[in-house]
Nucleic acid binder design. Structure first.
Ligand SMILES: [Mn+2]
Ligand SMILES: [Mn+2]
Ligand SMILES: [Zn+2]
Ligand SMILES: [Zn+2]
Lengths: 143, 143
DNA sequence: ATATAAATGATAATACTTTTCATTTAGAGC
DNA sequence: GCTCTAAATGAAAAGTATTATCATTTATAT
C-alpha cells in the first residue's frame, strides 16, 4: 500500500513546511502516478493543471519529499533520476536497461550487512542504494 | 589486488580497441590513483603529463573501461559519477555523506537474490548497484 | 609504405541542477 | 479577519555534466 496525498501533506506540516498550492500539486501528481517520474516528466504533469509552476519548484519540492522519505529516488546510472511515491517499508528496484521499466521489489534486508559494515569501518550508515539492471521479459522476447 | 596497467592495456587490445597514447595515459592515471576519481578529476590528472588530451576523450575511454569491467563506476547520488581501477571480483561501496570518502567492501553476494528476481520477474539481470551512504568515523568525531 | 577504419580534439549542443534575487504568500499571533 | 514575517516562489542566469558533430590525425593490418 502506498502513501496517500493526505499523509504526505500531513507529514509536510508536521515538519514545519508550508503547505502551498505548488506543493499540493506536486504531491497530487506524484501520488496519482504508478510510474517513476523524472523531475521533468513530473513538471509536465503538474503543469497540466498548474501551468505557472516552475521546474525549480519541482526540484525543491522533491528534495523535501525525499528527505522526509515520502518519495523514493532512483538512480538508474548516468545522470538519470526519477521519483515515485514511497511505498511504506523498504523496497528496491529492478530496472530494464532496454525499455526503462522499473519494478519495485521488497523482502530483502540489509540490516545484517549494515551492522557488519559498522563494526568493520565505523561508518554510521544513513541509507543505501540497491538497484538491479537487467532486461525485462518483454525486451528479451522482442530480441 | 588490483589490475595492472599491463592487463588493462592487454584487455583493450583483446577486444579490438586501439592502444592510443591517450588511452595509455588514462589507464596510467587511473591505475596509479587509490581514489575514486570523477571524469573531471581524472582529466586534470591526465593533463599533468599530456596537456592536449581533451575531456571528451576521458569520457570515451571511461565508457570502454567500464564496459570491459576494467574500472568500476560509482553513482553517489545526484549526477555524480566517479571511477577507480577495478579490483578483481565483486565489491561494493560505502560512501561518507560528509567528506565523500569511499570505502570498498567485498564478501557480500547477491546471486541468490538475483535468482529470486529472475524467477519472480523474468528479468535477466545484467548488473547491480549496491552503495551505502553514511558518516565515516572521522566525520562523526568532528561533530 | 599504404590503406583504412578507428580515434581524437575542438566545438557546439543538450541536459541537468543549483544559485540568486525580487516578489508573493502561508500560517502564526493577535 | 488583519498584520506581520519567515518561508516559498518564479524568472533568469549560472554552473556543471554529458553527448553529438565533424574535420583531422593515427594505430594497426597488410
Ligand atoms: Mn520505488
Ligand atoms: Mn570501487
Ligand atoms: Zn524492458
Ligand atoms: Zn567522512
Amino acid at each position: 500500500m502506498r502513501l496517500t496525498k493526505r499523509k504526505m501533506a500531513a507529514a509536510l506540516r508536521e515538519h514545519g513546511y508550508k503547505l502551498t498550492p505548488q506543493r499540493r500539486a506536486v504531491i497530487t501528481a506524484i501520488a496519482s502516478s504508478p510510474d517513476h517520474l523524472t523531475p521533468t516528466a513530473l513538471h509536465r504533469k503538474v503543469q497540466q493543471d498548474h501551468p505557472t509552476i516552475g521546474l525549480v519548484t519541482i526540484y525543491r519540492t522533491l528534495e523535501i519529499l525525499v528527505k522526509l522519505e515520502l518519495t523514493c529516488e532512483l538512480h538508474a546510472g548516468g545522470s538519470c533520476r526519477s521519483y515515485t511515491i514511497a511505498a511504506p517499508g523498504l523496497h528496491h528496484h529492478l530496472i530494464c536497461s532496454d525499455c526503462g521499466e522499473v519494478i519495485d521489489f521488497s523482502g530483502y534486508y540489509l540490516a545484517e550487512l549494515e551492522q557488519r559494515l559498522y563494526r568493520e569501518t565505523g561508518f554510521e550508515i544513513e541509507g543505501h542504494l540497491l538497484e538491479f539492471i537487467g532486461r525485462c521479459q518483454n525486451c528479451r522476447q522482442n530480441v
